[in-house]
Design a protein around this nucleic acid. Structure first.
Lengths: 154, 154
DNA sequence: TATATAGTGGACTATTATAGTCCCATATAT
DNA sequence: ATATATGGGACTATAATAGTCCACTATATA
């Protein structure tokens, strides 16, 4: 399936929600409710997004998270990369020296080329593209934490 | 990382090897040696590729596997799909009805669009593109079954 | 036609990766 | 001060994947 992890899925829902409410600060517990997951898990995702520089955090009472830049300038590649590390279908390329005759390996070059193409496909789509117009209602998710990425939108 | 499974990695190495030796029938045990994995595991991969119609099998003595069509007409998307099922980054789309307000969900549509783009990137690259010219030497892999995809080539 | 070779199908187990939770520390508004 | 909220890291549970095993079927050839 070539699928991304659940946490990445949560991340896209959270980012989507924040994109729909620009300039506002939202606490982890609130965002957890939006996605339908525990506060702890939401925190884990938020920390990761924060460290990657996609979210700005504010501590203390009335603290929370907001996007560091407009949704137009955040791509799905940014989010994927923040959650799962550099985009690449194979290990080869990330861990040099692990493979015999690496330098002459045409397969490696081609995998890198493919990964690059995938990256570009993801970079083309911005968070703003994904998000619905803010005027429309926001729909919440059932309890199942699985298919949440489809939840916040209209 | 958005990475594919190990078995898919093995599959690409095997397919690559077979592409370099067109018209020849190779037994599972031989292919296992090429990749550096057990015959059982190789068999598992080969069965999957066979069921997907990418490989033609021949039973009995002197039996084995070969490509069903020229390497130019087998894409990396074909192999990925054979090994991991339909290409898609999210579940949503595959399991309809799982998400509230599914029909109005713009996120879903966009994920499908992204998955489609990824699919196209993979479909563009043929097995022939990946394989080195047959005249050049073939390099074998170390013992580590991890980074094998980079092994067979030149 | 007996036998050795090689693939088929399915089930099972081990391993690994992921997701989820918990704890203690730090920051900040009131 | 204190309640609220994030930061960082470690730990555990769960799920997905990889790997193995078994009984069966097909086929070349001696």
């Amino acid at each position: 399936m070539l699928k991304m992890g659940k946490l990445t899925d949560y991340a896209t829902v959270i980012m989507n929600f924040l994109a729909q409410n620009p300039g506002e600060v939202h606490a982890a517990s609130e965002l957890a409710n939006v996605v339908g997951i525990s506060a702890q898990t939401a925190l884990k995702v938020l920390k990761t997004l924060s460290k990657a520089g996609l979210l700005q955090s504010q501590r203390g009472t009335k603290g929370g998270y907001q996007l560091t830049r407009p949704a137009q300038h955040i791509s799905m590649a940014d989010i994927l990369q923040a959650m799962e590390g550099p985009i690449g279908l194979t290990e080869c390329g990330s861990s040099p020296g692990a493979c015999v005759r690496e330098s002459q390996c045409s397969v490696k070059t081609n995998w890198q080329r493919i990964s690059q193409a995938v990256h570009e496909a993801l970079a083309k789509v911005s968070l703003a593209d994904m998000a619905a117009p803010p005027s429309q209602p926001i729909y919440f998710v059932k309890s199942a934490p699985d298919l949440t990425h489809a939840a916040v939108s209209a």
